[in-house]
């Protein structure tokens, strides 16, 4: 590791070209995938590749941190939010702002060309390599710098993290601005609104089942919407049993018919 040379080895070159291509593809996929969750996954892949590149560049600590913090923590946070918003929701990629896409593409291409031209223009030939800097170990070297030269920045970063944590709590915590209603107030409100004075009917009433997913039947045999949970209704997970009673009756009649028939046969045999 300490022999990390200024120039990259052939192996590193092969690794760069293969993984670099994958990274670019991942980045492009990130911005082109319709579903946010796919974008997140592509981005995570790209980040892992970047972690590999960090390692290849002698930044061992950063490579590990990249995997642990970015792909491990941050991307998971992203996924949580994506799930909150809706995993299945797909974005339309149709552009709504006039000319936005062309402008973005033009600016992007121009910007990229300029950056690349700038780097090429800089004519960087010599790489010192990190052999000497990493001599005492990469983590030790970083630690020495962080706790000496960059100690104030480091402390301030700590303050920043605390602030961010508090900020996130403040932003996401919905504060109750009014007193919670008591049971009495709720019942009075119900009377005032004038519907469902009695408690909602239990599921399965007038039916032969009393499972939560079976709508209660009204006296005329039709199922009542009120008796099942809204969630189940939206999922379409309600079992309609209104026809079951008729089927049962039919089966009963058939069975009694059979019974009667058998009796008659017995009588005839006698």
């Amino acid at each position: 590791m300490s022999a990390l040379a200024a120039a990259a080895s052939t192996g590193e070159a092969v690794q760069f070209w293969i993984l670099g291509t994958v990274a670019v593809v991942g980045a492009l996929s990130t911005i082109l995938m319709k579903k946010a969750v796919h974008s997140a996954l592509c981005l995570a892949g790209t980040m892992i590749i970047l972690a590999v590149f960090y390692l290849a560049n002698g930044a061992y600590f950063l490579g590990i941190v990249q995997i642990v913090v970015y792909t491990g923590a941050i991307m998971m946070l992203f996924l949580f939010v994506v799930m909150l918003v809706g995993v299945t929701a797909a974005d339309s990629l149709k552009e709504t702002l006039k000319g936005q896409r062309w402008l973005a593409a033009g600016c992007g291409i121009g910007f990229g060309i300029l950056l690349i031209a700038g780097i090429g223009n800089a004519g960087i030939k010599e790489f010192n390599g990190l052999g000497q800097a990493n001599a005492a170990g990469n983590v030790q070297g970083l630690a020495k710098l962080i706790f000496t030269d960059y100690v104030f920045a480091f402390e301030i970063t700590g303050a920043l993290l605390i602030t961010a944590t508090v900020g996130a709590m403040v932003l996401t915590n919905r504060e109750r601005t009014e007193r919670a209603k008591t049971q009495r107030e709720l019942s009075e409100q119900r009377v005032r609104e004038g519907k469902h004075l009695p408690p909602l009917p239990a599921p399965g009433v007038y039916a032969r089942h009393n499972a939560v997913d079976i709508a209660g039947l009204l006296p005329d045999g039709t199922p009542s919407e009120l008796t099942v949970m809204q969630t189940l209704r939206e999922r379409g997970q309600i079992r309609d049993v209104s026809t079951e009673a008729l089927n049962d009756l039919k089966a009963l009649e058939q069975r009694s018919e059979e019974r009667l028939g058998r009796d008659r046969e017995e009588e005839a045999a006698k």
Partner: peptide, 14 residues
């Protein structure tokens, strides 16, 4: 986009 274009122009100028 305006900001991005402005940045590109700045780089070009530099």
């Amino acid at each position: 986009v305006s900001m991005f274009g402005g940045t590109a122009i700045l780089i070009a100028a530099t």
